[in-house]
């Protein structure tokens, strides 16, 4: 399977739970596909839809957003805000012809390394099935080098959690 399509997925994780879950998955050597480039935010509530659009328009095939479980956000209710943004974004992106599987929201506590790895695996599978997004706005599209997306994202939201 050498020419299997390997989607590029940008993952935004909150600093407190989901990033630790990812960390745990790593140290526990839980296997998950290497397609996700993780970017750490302080909280999922910090996730500006701009980040998602920028990632998608510059070559990502999908975006994963991860936060603490409802009720466990370190900034109280910010992850509910992330949930609302995600649902609103899904409705909007559908009108651009972007499938809902490409932008996924998941909750993971610091102890849930295995669950997080499963989520990633499942998402990579789904996006692989959908095929490359290759957002054609700026043809020809170059693949996004790891790390570049994060560096280019301007800090826009004044309501940093």
């Amino acid at each position: 399977m050498t020419d299997q399509f390997e989607p590029v997925i940008i993952g935004f994780t909150c600093n407190w739970c989901s990033y630790r879950a990812a960390d745990l998955a790593g140290t526990a050597r839980i296997k998950y596909p290497p397609n996700v480039r993780l970017i750490r935010l302080m909280c999922s509530g910090r996730l500006d839809p701009t980040f998602v659009l920028k990632a998608l328009s510059e070559g990502a095939d999908g975006v994963l957003i991860a936060g603490c479980h409802p009720g466990e956000c370190h900034y109280l209710e910010q992850n509910y805000k992330a949930l609302r943004r995600h649902r609103l974004m899904q409705r909007t992106l559908a009108q651009f012809g972007i499938e809902p599987e490409r932008v996924r929201l998941t909750w993971a506590s610091a102890a849930e390394g295995a669950k997080f790895a499963e989520d990633i695996t499942e998402m990579v599978e789904q996006v692989r099935k959908l095929g490359p997004l290759n957002w054609p706005a700026n043809l020809p599209t170059k693949p996004v080098p790891v790390g570049m997306v994060a560096a280019e994202i301007p800090v826009l939201s004044e309501e940093v959690a």
């Binding site: 839809p49 998602v52 409802p70 609302r84 943004r85 309501e159």
Partner: peptide, 30 residues
């Protein structure tokens, strides 16, 4: 000024002020 994408900024703003936590309740507002 400082806003890269007007629509994204509006999505952020509107989602922020909606008073709902459960997916179904959020959807009803949306």
């Amino acid at each position: 000024p400082g806003v890269l994408d007007q629509g994204a900024r509006l999505m952020a703003a509107i989602a922020s002020v909606i008073d709902a936590k459960e997916p179904e309740a959020i959807d009803r507002v949306l």
